[in-house]
Amino acid sequence: MTQKFDDPGGDATEPLREVMARISSELIDVAQLIERLEPLLSNGRSTEFLASPDHMRVMQGIDLAVQKTHGLADFLNGLGERLEPDHLIDITTALNLITLEDMKRRLMASIHEEPSAEAYQKASGDLEFF
């Protein structure tokens, strides 16, 4: 059973393997958001811009960030699969460190929302100030 933030009592522990799976899912979502930057840096640009060393470094950096994010997600999944299901953890303090409310909700157990990369794609044209 997972404690909700507005629930003052109850057991706040949950299986670590499930927490790690949710973190892995968030990392995959981050990778997808980063991947969507690549076309923006190449569409409609001049060939000089595309051939510049600075541009290539940016593109390689984006590609590396995506690869590293996917790698970390796979690593967490691999670790989580090897954990015993009864290995419990309380993530309340860690969740309180997260400032993005939508990410916090997705990391909480028993709450399923679509990944933010999908939500942002569907909300194209909407503007949200933060």
Rank of each mutant, 00 (worst) to 15 (best):
H87C: 10
P85R: 13
E18T: 08
L79T: 08
D63F: 12
P53H: 12
D7R: 03
S25A: 15
I111A: 07
I23Y: 01
F130C: 00
Q32R: 15
M59Y: 07
F49K: 08
L95E: 10
G80N: 11
A65E: 01
K68G: 05
F130H: 00
L107Y: 01
V19M: 02
L100G: 09
Q60L: 09
A119H: 07
I98Q: 04
P8T: 02
A12H: 02
E101V: 08
S52R: 03
T92C: 03
T13G: 02
L40R: 14
R57V: 12
A94N: 00
L127T: 05
A12S: 04
P15D: 11
K122Q: 04
V66E: 00
S116D: 13
N96I: 00
F75W: 10
G10E: 08
D11Q: 05
R22H: 01
T13F: 02
V19L: 08
D54I: 13
R17W: 14
T69Y: 04
E113S: 10
E114W: 05
L37I: 12
E118A: 13
L127G: 02
D86M: 08
I62L: 14
D86N: 12
L37P: 02
G10W: 06
S24N: 06
E48F: 10
L16G: 04
L33K: 06
M1S: 13
F5T: 09
V58Q: 11
A73N: 03
I111D: 09
T69Q: 04
E114I: 11
A117P: 01
A123L: 01
A109G: 13
E26G: 09
Q121R: 13
H87S: 10
E38Y: 09
L72H: 14
L83F: 02
E128R: 07
M1P: 05
A119V: 15
I62R: 04
L41C: 10
I34E: 07
A94D: 10
H87W: 05
E81N: 14
L64G: 07
H70N: 03
G9L: 14
S42K: 00
H87N: 08
R36Q: 07
D29K: 06
M1R: 02
M20K: 07
G78T: 07
Q67F: 06
A117M: 03
L95T: 08
R57Q: 09
P85S: 14
M103Q: 05
D7N: 09
T2F: 11
S110P: 00
G9M: 08
A109M: 11
P115M: 05
A31I: 05
G61D: 13
L50H: 00
A123G: 02
F129N: 06
S25R: 15
L33I: 00
T99V: 09
T99Y: 12
H55C: 12
G71K: 01
L76S: 02
H55W: 12
D86P: 02
A117L: 03
L27H: 01
H87P: 00
A51E: 14
M59G: 07
I98D: 00
I98P: 03
A51L: 10
A51T: 12
Q32T: 11
R17F: 15
R105Y: 14
E101A: 09
I89K: 12
L95V: 07
M108R: 06
I28D: 15
Q121I: 04
H55I: 10
H55D: 05
Q3G: 07
L127H: 03
K68P: 01
E35Q: 11
E128I: 07
F5V: 10
Q3P: 03
S25F: 15
S46M: 03
